[in-house]
C-alpha cells in the first residue's frame, strides 16, 4: 500500500528541477572542512544556492574525480592536483586560483605537552606521532618535509602513525591515542589563537608553502551555482572567514 506513495515521493524529490539548478557539488580537502561549512552557510544566505560538500584527502578526491564522481568544484589542499586535473581534461581551463595558503602545526590535545616543539621532537619522548598519509594528503607531505629539514626522518620513523586524511590525523591526536601530530593550523585555530591543547606553529622555512588551489570541474561548467561559489571564495566575506582559521588569503 505504502510503496507507491514512497516511490512517488522519491520521484518528486529526485526530479525537482529547482533544487538541481541551485545546487553545487563540491569536493573539499579535509583541512578546509570547518571554514567550508562556515562559507557554505554564508554563501547560501547571500546567494540562495545550496552547497553539497564532500570531504576527504586531496588524493582520495582526485581518484574519485578522475573516475567520474559528480563533483563540480574542487578545493584541493595543494596546487599540483588541480593542475593535474586540468591536464587530464577534467577541469575548465583558466579557472584555477589559490583560495587559501595553509599552515602546518605540531599539535597535542594535552595543553602542557608542547612548550618547545622542536626540542620535543628531538627528544623523541613520545610513543606516537601522527601525520597524514604523505602520498595522498599534502599536509602529510609537508610534515615529512619538516622532519627531513630537521634531520629527524630516521629518528621519528618508528613513532609515525598515518591518518588517511588530515581529518583522521586530527582524530588520532584529539582522542589522545597519539600524543602529538602534524595537523592543519585551521583545525585547531580560531580568530588568532589555538583553541585547545598545545601547539607549535612551524616556521614557514621548514616546509614548502601549501598553496591550496580551487578549480571549476567540467561537470560544473554549465552550473551558475558552481561559478558563483568560486567567485564567492574570492569575496571579502569569505576571505575573512578563511583568515579566521589561520590561512593566508
Amino acid at each position: 500500500m505504502r510503496l507507491p506513495l514512497l516511490i512517488t515521493a522519491i520521484a518528486c524529490l529526485s526530479v525537482n528541477p529547482l533544487a538541481l539548478a541551485d545546487e553545487v557539488q563540491v569536493a573539499v580537502a579535509a583541512n578546509f572542512t570547518a571554514p567550508m561549512q562556515e562559507i557554505a552557510q554564508a554563501f547560501e544566505q547571500d546567494t540562495g544556492h545550496r552547497v553539497v560538500a564532500a570531504f576527504g584527502s586531496t588524493g582520495q578526491l582526485y581518484a574519485q574525480i578522475s573516475h567520474g564522481a559528480p563533483f563540480e568544484v574542487f578545493l584541493a589542499a595543494d596546487a599540483t592536483t588541480p593542475a593535474r586535473i586540468e591536464q587530464d581534461g577534467l577541469a575548465v581551463t583558466g579557472t584555477r586560483f589559490t583560495y587559501a595558503t595553509g599552515a602546518l602545526v605540531l599539535w597535542s590535545a594535552d595543553a602542557s605537552l608542547i612548550s618547545d616543539g622542536e626540542q620535543l621532537l628531538r627528544s623523541g619522548s613520545f610513543q606516537h606521532l601522527a601525520i597524514a598519509n604523505p602520498k595522498t594528503a599534502p599536509y602529510g607531505l609537508a610534515a615529512t618535509q619538516v622532519m627531513q629539514r630537521l634531520g629527524l626522518s630516521a629518528a621519528l620513523a618508528d613513532t609515525l602513525v598515518e591518518g588517511q586524511s588530515i581529518g583522521q590525523t586530527y582524530q588520532f591526536v584529539a582522542s589522545g591515542n597519539a600524543e602529538l601530530g602534524f595537523v592543519a593550523l585551521s583545525q585547531v585555530y580560531r580568530n588568532g589563537e589555538i583553541t585547545t591543547g598545545s601547539a607549535w606553529q612551524l616556521p614557514a622555512d621548514l616546509y614548502e608553502p601549501i598553496h591550496q588551489d580551487a578549480v571549476l570541474l567540467d561537470k560544473g561548467a554549465d552550473n551558475p551555482a558552481a561559478a558563483a561559489l568560486l567567485s564567492y571564495l574570492k569575496s571579502e566575506r569569505a576571505a575573512a572567514i578563511i583568515r579566521g582559521y589561520g590561512y593566508g588569503h
Binding site: S57, G59, Q60, Y62, A63, S66, H128, A130, N133, K135, T136, L160, V161, E162, G163, Q164, F172, A178
Partner: peptide, 21 residues
C-alpha cells in the same frame, strides 16, 4: 594508523594502492 609490518594489513594496503592510483 597504517604502520608497515604492524597494522598495515592487505585490505589497507589495497586501499593505499588505489588512493595512490
Amino acid at each position: 594508523g597504517n604502520i608497515p609490518e604492524r597494522t598495515r594489513v592487505v585490505s589497507v594496503q589495497i586501499f593505499n594502492h588505489v588512493e595512490a592510483m
